[in-house]
Every structure is written in C-alpha cells, then in structure tokens.
Write a protein that binds this DNA or RNA. Sequence first.
DNA 1: GCGAAAGTGTTCCATAAGGAACAAGTAAGC
DNA 2: GCTTACTTGTTCCTTATGGAACACTTTCGC
Lengths: 193, 193
Amino acid sequence: MYGKRAMDRRKQKTRKAILDAFSELLTKKSYSRISVQEIIDEANVGRTTFYAHFETKDDLLRALCEKLFSHIIQSASDYAHTHGLYSEKNAPLPVFCHLLQHLKEDGRNIIPLLSSSNNDLFIRYFKDSMNELVESSVMKDYRVDDESIPHAFLINHISGSFVEMVLWWINRGMKEKPEELDVYFRAVIEPIL
Amino acid sequence: MYGKRAMDRRKQKTRKAILDAFSELLTKKSYSRISVQEIIDEANVGRTTFYAHFETKDDLLRALCEKLFSHIIQSASDYAHTHGLYSEKNAPLPVFCHLLQHLKEDGRNIIPLLSSSNNDLFIRYFKDSMNELVESSVMKDYRVDDESIPHAFLINHISGSFVEMVLWWINRGMKEKPEELDVYFRAVIEPIL
DNA sequence: GCGAAAGTGTTCCATAAGGAACAAGTAAGC
DNA sequence: GCTTACTTGTTCCTTATGGAACACTTTCGC
C-alpha cells in the first residue's frame, strides 16, 4: 500500500515508446490488422522488451485507454468530490460541463482516436469509464423519484447519452462551446432526476 | 579496419538522445556554461550512461561536430574524386558549388549552430574540415605557378576564404543562390591558382 | 578569505533491454 | 493436400543503462 518507488527511467521511456507507436498505428489501421511485430518496429524496441511490459496486444490496448481516459476522468472525479457534495439537489451536473471543457482544451490525444474510423474500442472504454464516474461521483447522493426505474438503468442512460453527445460534437467539428452543450445535456437529463 | 557490427539499439538511442540534448542546449547557452549534469538531464539518461559513451564534454563536442560535418564533407570529397580528376585545369572548383548547394538544402542542423552567438567552436571545426578537404581533394593535382608561395599557405587561404564566405552568406539570410556565390568565389580564387 | 553548493569522473550492484533462436499456430497461394 | 511466409509467445544469455554513493575540484555568495 506504500508507493511503488519511481519507475526506472528505462521502463518509462520504453513504455512511452510502445504506447506512442501503438497510438500512431491506430490512426492508420484498425486494431485487428495491427501486428505485435509492427508495434515493435514502430516503437523501435526489442521483442523481449515488449512482452516484458505487456502480456498481449489486448493488454496494451487496455493500458492505452487507461492512460488516455484516466487523466480526464480522474479530474472530473476530483471535481465532483469537491463541488458535487455541496451542490443543491437539482444542480449536480457541473461535472459534465467540466468534462467537456477539459476534453476540448486537453483532448488532443483522445479526440483523434475517438473520431478515427475504427473508434469502437475507444468508445466502449469511454463509455465504461463514464459509467463508473457517473455511478461513483454523480449518482451517489441521488435517490430516484420514480422507484420503478432501476438505478443501473439510469446510470447507463446518463453515461450513454453523454458519450453519444460527445461523439456527435466531435464529428461535427466541435463547433459548440462546452457551456452550450451543457445546457442541452441538462435539458434532457435533469427532468428525469 | 572494417565494420564493428551494428550498434545495439540502446546505444543508438542513447547516443542520439545525448547529441540531440547537447545540440539543443548549445542553441541557448555557450559551450563553457553547459554542465554535464544539464546534458544528462536534458537527454534523460543516467550519469553512468553518459560516461559510457563520451569521455568528457570535449569528446562530446568532437562527436557532434563530426556528425554534423562528416556528412557534408564526405559528400564533397566523393564529388571531388569522381568529378575533380577529369576536369580541365582551370575549372577545378565545382566542389565548392556542390558544397554550397548541399549546405543550403541539407544544412538545417548545421546552420543554426554556425549562426548562433557562440559559434566559434563550430567555425573552427568547419575550417579544419575544409582544410582537410581542400588539401586532399582539391589541391592534390595542382602545382602552383608561383613557387614562392607555400602550399600550406594556399590551402589555408582557400579554406579560410570559403568559411568566411559561408558565414557572410548565412548572416545575411542566405539570399544568394549557391551558383552566384560560386561565381564570386571563383573570381577571387582562380586568379591565384 | 571561508563555507556551502554544484560539478566531475569513478565505483559497485541491480535490472531493464536487446538479440537470437525456438515451437506452435495461422493464413495464403498453388 | 502441400508448401511458404508470417505471427505469436517463450526461452537463455549478453549487454547497456540506471541509481546511488563516493572523493575530489570548481564555483559562488557572503
């Protein structure tokens, strides 16, 4: 439980090289068409080294997604814990606005992958991350008025709507301001809370 | 005398990292104000690693200069050996035109260092390289008409003039075409051959 | 001047990375 | 069917890199 000591410089550099190479390849080919050999070549790293870091290609994908989303989700989670708890009952959603702003300002690594032709894996991971975020940070203090609707269903609805909105936003060139989108989102979500 | 087998991937990467870091630092500070520690930090390598590659800071400087000039000088030397031998007596200087062209097209690493505020070390190395080139490739087949002028003096005059011309060229923004410069250079050099 | 701080070059030891070869699986072409 | 070429994980062993500590010199502030 005490901190793992700082990762060896070599490990950091190698890990970054592999993730960068993989990320680069993903903008050109679909996940299934990328071979480990290609990743190794692009990263300029030995075969042994690759397998010392990642068990398999799927493992690498997981790591990449985690790296990409952890930052933004963690930031939102922190935001929710500091602001969310003290908000009034019908204004719990600034987290989403915060997320959109963060995505626009700092999403240069994420957006290309979310808008690439083979974006399904990332969308799924994005959705999963959002699901966890909504469950742990947003919906925690909420009791649903209509008890006939399952809690889990609501969570899925909210995170799913959010992800779809983001994709819509990105595909149209992110013209709208985060604040505008936030208004739209509240308009479709708040009524059911 | 021939080749050491291909350098280990790690060595290549480390060597490049150190040379790049050094090159980067040289655009900001003078050579004497750069510490090994800074190079290590900028290159993001361990102290042991640095000293496994270079004995000292001077050694590193030598390696950088060699890397920067060897390409361009080697190319000129090759050019001289294929073209130089068959040229008529009073047209031996196409090597210089070739050098200028090469410098303009492919000198993006060299020119910033030659025009930086602390460029003296590079100029000296450039001059030394030119000296060798002139001696080995240009002046080899020439007998000086006026035997009262020492051979070595002539070599120094030619390489020195060339270097000074290049600096003048760079400092004024490299406006002239290599071919124009070549004409000027021939005008001041050919009369004495 | 002196003491503190930073830089140098070296040591020793732990470990990550490399390279090569391997058996096994897969797909494609003929 | 059969090659043929390519991929995947894995192995064993070598080598480069890292980190820390060291004694020593240089530089700097006061």
